[in-house]
Design a protein around this nucleic acid. Structure first.
Length: 492
RNA sequence: GCGGGAAUAGCUCAGCGGUAGAGCGCCAGCCUUCCAAGCUGGGGGUCGCGGGUUCGAAUCCCGUUUCCCGCUCCA
């Protein structure tokens, strides 16, 4: 599929709008519309439930976005997140100024009649003695003066800028967890291993935002910091390494559980040169996006780096008392860090399908029922029959108390179904003449409605009294076939 | 920041010097008892913005902003 198709659908159907669009839009920022916010909330809710509420070893946290500036000194972000960069004026390549002298460079040597060859990093040319001044890649272009790239959003706490304390919008939610490690440990009486989870906004001045909501400067993370005792072993392996593997499996399974096709997911191990300054090992969960395989979630072994740094900078002890070994330990931490917006994009991309039905194109979002923004649409088959409309409205109001339900009577039934398909509504309930009967002919209604399933377009006839219990199952764990079996099929 | 492309209706796009168009969607009515049916009607755009050329600019020129795609970078 093409990303533009999805961008267009998202706008047209109220999932995602360009930020500040009436002013021409603003780069890299996107707003979630009425359906988008439901979808995103559902994703976050599923993540929270599966990773926090259903696990005895996990607790949650919601830390402030603005933190003490020293946090970012301790975490290493202030040093590592700001790089001086230079550009080649000829070939447009960009380089880190501080790494320029380390890399080999292309040289057109005047002493050898302008022959082109590569000189090792940091060394002068053996023939003419020249040192590198031009672009190391093309050997021809001049480089611009170094420019400072600050990947953190700097801001001021306090209304008077001169007197205010400089701080930063957090570039990751993780640090909020680390600085609260001891608070959580003490208040919740936790034993290793345990994890702290957090969902929240983070901000990075990405050099190259883009690909719709894939890389944005303001984004939402779903992070877990899972603390383990480095002195323990599991099946003969250090606990941190064993838990790293477990979390990779667990997280991969999570995406599959909510409908992402296995062959669109893969794990990619970082090689040594790619590792962040704190990481012992990192593996990414990648999804096959329209623009190629890209990271959904990074699962890193951050070792005891962060707790040690914060202990040092704050002067507070951030240790855990190991009763068995009668010693204080600094836990190691495994960090599964997922992007909420990226997940949402992956769920959308994976769910989007076009198919041909009776010679017409049908666009359907096969979203997992737990994620679908609206669960049920109630549709009257005939709009001018007031009894049908009244029954449909009544049904809608009843169902809406428990599930996100919409009512629509503004078009013919076929069109109404297609609209719901396009936004991924898993079930439609249709009220027809048989439901309410025909008082002119003295016929009583059967008080049954049709439930139509999105993916198969199959329909069953269900008594209104059963609806609540049927949707409990259809929107819970039960498979469609399992539920549908008990009811007569309706022809479409 | 550099290079390239683009900016016209909600969406997709045509128009490329002579008073703003199509398809789809949307809204209303008629019709219709189950998968984008039909008919009638309707709303909606100072053609990104600013300047210039011209009798006349969506169209040509200059500037500018924004978006998209590459490149550099991604904790």
């Amino acid at each position: 599929m093409n990303m533009d198709v999805l961008v267009s659908l998202c706008k047209r159907r109220g999932f995602i709008f360009q930020s500040s669009e009436i002013y021409g839009g603003t780069g890299s920022c996107w707003d979630y519309g009425p359906l988008g916010v439901e979808l995103k909330n559902n994703i976050k809710r599923a993540w929270w439930r599966d990773n926090v509420q259903l696990r005895p070893d996990m607790v949650g946290l919601d830390a402030s976005i603005l933190m003490h500036a020293t946090v970012w000194r301790a975490s290493g972000h202030l040093d590592h997140f700001t790089d001086p960069m230079v550009d080649c004026k000829a070939c447009q390549r960009r380089f880190r100024a501080d790494k320029l002298d380390e890399q080999s460079w292309i040289h057109y040597c005047p002493a050898t009649k302008g022959n082109k060859f590569e000189v090792p990093g940091g060394e002068p040319c053996k023939h003419c003695g020249a040192r590198r001044t031009l672009c190391p890649e093309c050997g021809k272009g001049e480089l611009t003066a170094p420019r400072q790239f600050n990947l953190m959003f700097k801001t001021f706490m306090g209304p008077v800028e001169d007197e205010a304390a400089v701080t930063y919008l957090r570039p990751e939610t993780a640090q909020g967890i680390f600085v609260n490690f001891d608070n959580v440990l003490q208040s919740m009486r936790l034993k290793l291993p345990f994890g702290i989870a957090q969902i929240g906004k983070a901000f990075r001045n990405e050099i190259t935002p883009g690909n719709f909501i894939f890389r944005t400067r303001e984004f939402e993370q779903m992070e877990i910091e899972y603390f383990v005792n480095p002195h323990e072993t599991i099946d003969g392996r250090p606990a941190d390494e064993a838990w790293h593997d477990r979390w990779m499996e667990e997280r991969l399974a999570w995406y599959r559980r909510y409908g992402i096709r296995a062959d669109n997911l893969r794990l990619r191990e970082h090689d040594k040169s790619e590792l962040a300054h704190y990481a012992k090992r990192t593996a990414d969960i990648e999804y096959r996006f329209p623009m190629g395989w890209s990271e959904l979630e990074g699962i890193a072994n951050r070792t005891d780096f962060d707790l040690r740094q914060h202990a040092q900078f704050s002067g507070k002890s951030l240790t855990y008392y190991d009763e068995d070994r009668r010693t204080h330990v600094v836990p190691y931490v495994i960090e599964p860090s997922a992007g909420a917006d990226r997940s949402l994009l992956a769920f959308l991309v994976d769910a989007y399908q076009e198919e041909e039905v009776r010679g017409e194109k049908r666009v359907v979002l096969r979203l997992h029922r737990a994620l679908a923004p609206t669960k049920i649409a109630v549709l009257p088959l005939l709009k001018k029959r007031t009894d049908i409309v009244a029954t449909a409205r009544e049904l809608h109001d009843r169902l809406a108390r428990r599930w996100v339900t919409v009512y629509d009577d503004t078009a013919a039934i076929g069109r109404l179904y297609r609209r719901q398909d396009e936004v991924g509504t898993p079930y439609c309930v249709t009220v027809d003449v048989q439901t309410v009967g025909d008082s002119d002919k003295g016929e009583a209604g059967d008080r049954c409605v049709t439930i139509r399933e999105r993916d198969s377009m199959e329909q069953i006839r269900v008594p209104i009294e059963d609806l609540s219990q049927v949707f409990d199952r259809l929107l819970g764990e039960a498979a469609w076939d399992e539920v549908a079996r008990a009811y007569p099929r309706a022809k479409s």
